[in-house]
Design a protein around this nucleic acid. Sequence first.
DNA 1: GCATTTCTGTACCGAGTGGTAGGATCCGCC
DNA 2: GGCGGATCCTACCACTCGGTACAGAAATGC
Lengths: 218, 218
Amino acid sequence: MTSTASYRGRGRPRGFVEDEALDRAIHVFWEHGYEGTSLSDLTAAMGINKPSLYIAFGSKEELFKRALVRYKDTYVAYAAGTLEEPTAYAVIESYLRTAVDALTGSGHPPGCLSIQGGLSCAPSNSGISEFLAAYRAVFEGELAQRLARAEKEGDLVGGTDTAALARFVVTLGQGLAVHAAAGAGREDLQAAVEVGLRAIAAYVPSGTSVTPAAANGA
Amino acid sequence: MTSTASYRGRGRPRGFVEDEALDRAIHVFWEHGYEGTSLSDLTAAMGINKPSLYIAFGSKEELFKRALVRYKDTYVAYAAGTLEEPTAYAVIESYLRTAVDALTGSGHPPGCLSIQGGLSCAPSNSGISEFLAAYRAVFEGELAQRLARAEKEGDLVGGTDTAALARFVVTLGQGLAVHAAAGAGREDLQAAVEVGLRAIAAYVPSGTSVTPAAANGA
DNA sequence: GCATTTCTGTACCGAGTGGTAGGATCCGCC
DNA sequence: GGCGGATCCTACCACTCGGTACAGAAATGC
């Protein structure tokens, strides 16, 4: 229905692949933010012209929202995966470590679109910052739920404020994103994560396995 | 020299107080970011018109930079003060707690100007985001120095990676700012800080006093 | 072939951007 | 009072913004 596939209709076919153009848009928004990106920047990067953009995506704002959705499904897919880890500690550790890799990975701008996109905007664009804030809140909620389950399952000490723990983790993650956007390297961020994980260890019942060394694997 | 005081010169006197106008500018930039703020927004908030603004501050960009300097000297003066605390733990605890208060205080927009101002900008405004990043790096450096001193003085366990510790603290602080900008309340942020302080405790030699109260019991 | 349908390209729209010119206005000094 | 000097206000500048009208181009269906 959303015609992401190559629909062979009756008229002249599109000269571009929608998801491909969307990926280009993601990169521009990611690097320069919503307000720092003009339609000219977008059309130049996407390789299409304004009427085509408008027909395909509706408006700059709708394009941004669709870009964010795709961003989530591609660049941030790892986050959902981390929730599947067996224990609370493993979830948090996995999330923070993969976040660092994602924030500083090559092939895309550093940092996180959901923050760089528009932490604060002009009044006329306030919908953007609200949309982004709501988006960020979703993962925090999912993580809080996951940690609440973990507390019931006994791999967090009883009585742990799981909401606070989740908030701490995403807060640290967002701080990492800010740092990454400013050019901090992977090692720098990993070092901060190691410190943060020390805090988590305090909420893990003694006896539960906490990955022993810092960054190395099993 | 900078004529911040009311200089009685030979010509017509100014119809506004410079620092007062600067404070208004700070608030607008703080809430909407550099690119989300137009000259019209500024003149309306500052109560002066464009030529006066231009004569007094040079340009939008110079106004922003002067606003950031004043912001640092007023709204973020607490940060420098926290470095005077006697121990590393006290420094970090004081910084994070006062940061939460500052980020969610009344009488000004939530969050932090140095982040909301322009985490990422259009290419033509890249100087702004770089300027902000450099500004943020200053405090991280000061904190790292302070913690290095603390390690020598023995109130951090020997061999502590003080740079990583400093980076963790400011990373958490920046995450708090992102959350605050999105509307998180004081209690929410404090809860995250409590978790973070657990990590710090791991770097404090046993016997050193760690403020007991806060969130945990003993 | 030809009508139909859809997309592409150019050229344009009103509104708003950051920034400025020039004159009116108000002041201290003489 | 008159002069020189600094500020304030109106109106405007070239430019870019997001968004669109319209005609030409390329495909399908008959």
